[in-house]
Design a protein around this nucleic acid. Structure first.
Lengths: 343, 343
DNA sequence: TTTTTTTGTTTAAACGATTAAGCATATCTT
DNA sequence: AAGATATGCTTAATCGTTTAAACAAAAAAA
């Protein structure tokens, strides 16, 4: 059986003093009124018995757990894994632990996670909210449980959040394609109503509009999360076989880009000569792609830090006004968006 | 301020009954002796007030938290991120939560994490132990805290663990190089004394030995975790500039491979014609490498599941004999290890 | 010397849940 | 009808910690 941890009681018994005295020494240190001799003795015994305070008990007493609930779409997605790592470190600096869960972009799973983490009494949440989770966020707010959204947010539900300007970034990266002479830009997006995705789409459309291109609905394909790979393949096939085939693609996320680029490879299409490509996000994977990718670089480090800081702020200071943090994202121009070579 | 959660007390007051009665109804259900009428009423009120049991309090009472402490080298490394994801799901099935931390292969960080998670009263640990953490593991065992090691283990410290046969896998993947005619195989490993790494090195050496090649120490380069990228570059440069330059490289981990392949690219060396390559692990990244990589495929899914199951087993059943699980790994033969083309 | 203040420690309640034991009533046995 | 058993609920202890309040003894002030 697991050995019972050493408790204040054990120390108290050993020293021959009350539990309270031990607690004062060990938790208050200098500014308790316990005599120096007694303090020293208690500390010595505590050390000898290897006392470790039971955080569960402390939490029950204090009503605070020094724990952050982190809900992401999928921890195995490098975008989220990297974010998680940044947050882990940042939280540790503030003496917080992170408990995470993957929602798989499903509102039901998100709901489960929120309930679960709530009952574990997390002090606050950092959430990349999935579609349909808006009421869940509102619920947390009604309960006055601190929440910071990351990557996405709900325009109609004011919260603290940390994002990048998706419209702007999208606009700029798609414009790269147009600037290098591409006229029939296709876009692959996920079929969700989340603001970040809609903004990326809006950015894409704005570029077309501003350059006098027709907005062809068949050039914008929305992909489900469930069967992304297959749908991406079909969408690309469709856009290439159309009367008016695309000459370039904008991938709205890293996962879409990964599926898409693999498929282009299978079709023996070369980037950028046969088809140009731009994408959101980056990753080790793209570093190995034969053609360096023009992409939107999200400042993961800053986003993660800002989210943790913002949450910490709200926890310590529940009544400050809501803080919307929009960080600048860089558009990294590489070869994949360059001009079509005339053969 | 954060609203206090609804407790049994609140329900008891509302219904006009004792806390115990409420507890019996809500936790024991059918087999309590509370009358059906009373039960129904209590359940109704609980629902109306949206009662969520306080897991912290339950944990304090039960001495069990349904929480697993997971210590990995780095959650942003895809190998570990994928493992983490598998474990998260598997743990959830058993009604366990995962709290993770990244050790960065440092014993000191590992020690901190263990202390930290212990004081949070995790029910057990799954650890990919870093070099120098052997006594930490022994300590946990002395405390009868369940531990399962993953990816690595300590031969002198018997524990439950889940690994693959690193010697065998290494042997087989290096043999691929030799089989296709390579005679001067270099190896990049991390400079740690951990068993998995030593086994991979042993496998490599065994292939050389079995094929009558001299064991050239300068063909085996050990890289530190701190400055991996630079050291990999230097090591490759050195091995190529030697009197007896290598014609192929075995990368002992995915991170080494990533650094190494990028450097080969910079040197304008083509795989496999200029230099052949085999590696441990896989990843999205390698899918985009121009030359499909011969590699050892670790069964992440099975490893993660086995580790969680094994830990669960030990938690529920502290006295069963230790279980060493060694899973088979596949060697995926691809183009990167193929024969040198004579030009 | 008496009163006040300071010092050093203990008592006891609390956090929210669980559960053995207790205690009435009600129902069953003979 | 008396004793046994079953039913339905409450009391109280417990997990490990914190902390206000109480208290006794010592030191300082009057």
């Amino acid at each position: 059986m697991k050995k019972r941890q050493v408790s204040l009681k054990d120390i108290a018994k050993e020293v021959g003093v009350s539990i309270a005295t031990v607690s004062y020494v060990l938790s208050k240190g200098k500014d308790s009124r316990v005599s120096e001799a007694m303090s020293a003795k208690i500390r010595e015994v505590a050390k000898r018995l290897n006392y470790q305070p039971n955080i569960i008990a402390q939490s029950l007493k204090s009503g605070t757990t020094n724990t952050i609930g982190l809900i992401l779409a999928d921890i195995s997605n490098p975008f989220f894994a990297n974010l998680a790592r940044v947050m882990e470190d940042e939280a540790a600096k503030l003496n917080y632990t992170v408990i995470f869960g993957s929602s798989d972009e499903k509102a039901a799973k998100s709901r489960q996670l929120i309930d679960f983490l709530s009952s574990r009494q997390v002090d606050g949440f950092i959430i990349a909210p999935s579609e349909g989770s808006e009421e869940q966020i509102q619920y947390l707010q009604q309960q006055d449980i601190p929440v910071v959204l990351i990557d996405r947010f709900f325009p109609k539900t004011p919260t603290d959040y940390v994002i990048i300007d998706n419209y702007e970034s999208s606009y700029r990266v798609v414009k790269e394609l147009v600037r290098s002479g591409h006229q029939r830009v296709g876009m692959l997006a996920y079929t969700d109503r989340l603001f970040h995705m809609q903004e990326r789409i809006r950015g894409y459309k704005a570029v077309l509009q501003d350059n006098g291109f027709l907005d062809k609905p068949e050039h914008l394909c929305e992909i489900s999360y469930e069967d992304g790979k297959k749908e991406v393949q079909e969408a690309i096939d469709r856009m290439l076989a159309a009367d008016d085939p695309i000459d370039s693609i904008f991938f709205a996320t890293n996962t879409l880009a990964i599926h898409g680029l693999k498929h282009l490879g299978k079709l023996n299409l070369r980037v950028p000569n046969d088809i140009a490509v731009v994408s959101f996000d980056e990753g080790e994977a793209f570093d190995f792609y034969y053609c360096p990718l023009t992409h939107v670089r999200q400042p993961l480090e800053e986003m993660g830090k800002a989210a943790v800081q913002s949450l910490w702020n709200r926890i310590k200071n529940p009544d400050i006004p809501q803080q919307a943090i929009s960080l600048p994202a860089d558009v990294m121009v590489r070869k994949s968006s360059s001009a079509i070579m005339t053969k």
